[in-house]
């Protein structure tokens, strides 16, 4: 192969194409084989618009200018982050990462934990926090059987109507009713909590930085304020809460609820269970999503492998071809 190519080069100079090959001669010396001989381009001119100093200066100016303009407009560059004078006291302590049993990409919720968490929510949190986006029916097949949920819903009175007299009336709850609210409206909620509004918990795990880790850390993180920190009357100190002063007092204490399944109701156990429940409330599609994700990865992975193989298969003749130059016999 190599010797053939060398012959081709030497012969080309004296062949009939010698005029056209003169310009291409320098690159021919550098080429490695006859394969690229026909497609090799001639050397670029020494100076072009791509190598001039003016182009370099203009590109540099454009880059610096656009960065300066962007920084002026938006404050900081994306993906780089800025330096700010924020402190943990202002933004809240960063919550530690906890080994949730549903953390892995293939791990479903622990539904026994969701059930216990619902109990904690109902007995503790529901005194102040609403759960607007969860209906009784959502619990069916997740943490409770349908008859249990019907009973629980029937214990709550809902206003319905109007009846044929045009009057509103009270009726026991049904599966389609949403979780009862502790306060009729926001003003009543504020009035009952010294001006602080207890947030709705339906999407709280999605709505907070640190998600479930934050909620768990907040529930278990109440401590006495450190030296030098004074907390206003009626507020409590919690390092995980931005600012440190939170209106909600510590509510979870060991043995506060009694779990029917015999799980010891420690503070951390209750916090873990109610956080799992709230995580489910924020992402009810969680289990199904992960399962479909697994299926999609298998299917799309197989299809990708198949298409890559097909591409290689189809391109094999082109990728493995060799172009050989056979010199004319009667060269002088």
């Amino acid at each position: 192969m190599a010797s053939k190519a060398t012959t081709a080069r030497t012969l080309l100079r004296s062949s009939a194409w010698s005029t056209s090959s003169r310009t291409a001669a320098p690159s021919f010396k550098q080429s490695f084989g006859a394969r690229f001989a026909s497609t090799q381009s001639s050397t670029a001119p020494a100076s072009s618009v791509f190598t001039s100093g003016a182009t370099l200066a203009a590109a540099t100016g454009l880059t610096v200018g656009s960065i300066a303009w962007y920084t002026h407009l938006y404050g900081e560059l994306p993906l780089i982050g800025g330096v700010s004078a924020s402190s943990l006291a202002d933004n809240g302590l960063h919550p530690a990462e906890h080994p949730w049993s549903h953390k892995g990409v293939l791990d479903s919720f622990d539904h026994a934990s969701i059930r216990r968490g619902y109990q904690v929510y109902r007995e503790v949190c529901a005194a102040c926090h609403s759960l607007d986006r969860i209906a009784w029916r959502n619990l069916v097949g997740v943490s409770h059987a349908v008859d249990e949920v019907k009973e629980m819903a029937a214990e709550v009175e809902y206003e319905d109507g109007p009846n044929d007299q045009g009057e509103m009336f009270q009726r026991p709850g049904k599966l389609s009713d949403y979780m009862p609210k502790p306060y009729p409206n926001e003003e009543a909620a504020r009035a009952g909590n010294a001006g602080a509004l207890p947030p709705d918990l339906s999407l709280i795990v999605k709505a907070r930085h640190g998600a479930a880790d934050y909620v768990y850390s907040l529930l278990t993180g109440y401590i006495d304020p450190p030296a030098g920190v004074t907390v206003r009357e009626g507020l409590n100190y919690n390092p995980y809460f931005p600012g440190g002063a939170i209106a909600m007092a510590r509510v979870l204490f060991d043995g506060l609820v009694e779990y029917p399944d015999g799980t010891p109701a420690t503070t951390s156990q209750m916090a873990k269970d109610v956080t799992t429940f709230l995580h489910w409330a924020a992402e009810p599609e969680h289990d199904e999503r992960k399962k479909i994700g697994l299926q999609a990865l298998i299917i799309f992975g197989s299809l990708l492998t198949l298409s890559l193989y097909t591409k290689r298969f189809k391109w094999t003749p082109l990728k493995t071809r060799k172009i050989v130059y056979v010199p004319p016999k009667d060269a002088h």
Partner: peptide, 20 residues
């Protein structure tokens, strides 16, 4: 895939604890 999912998450799903 459902069989794999159920064995991976054994004891955690509602159908595993429903009998209680």
């Amino acid at each position: 895939t459902t069989a794999f999912w159920d064995s991976w998450n054994k004891g955690k799903q509602w159908k595993d604890i429903r009998h209680n």
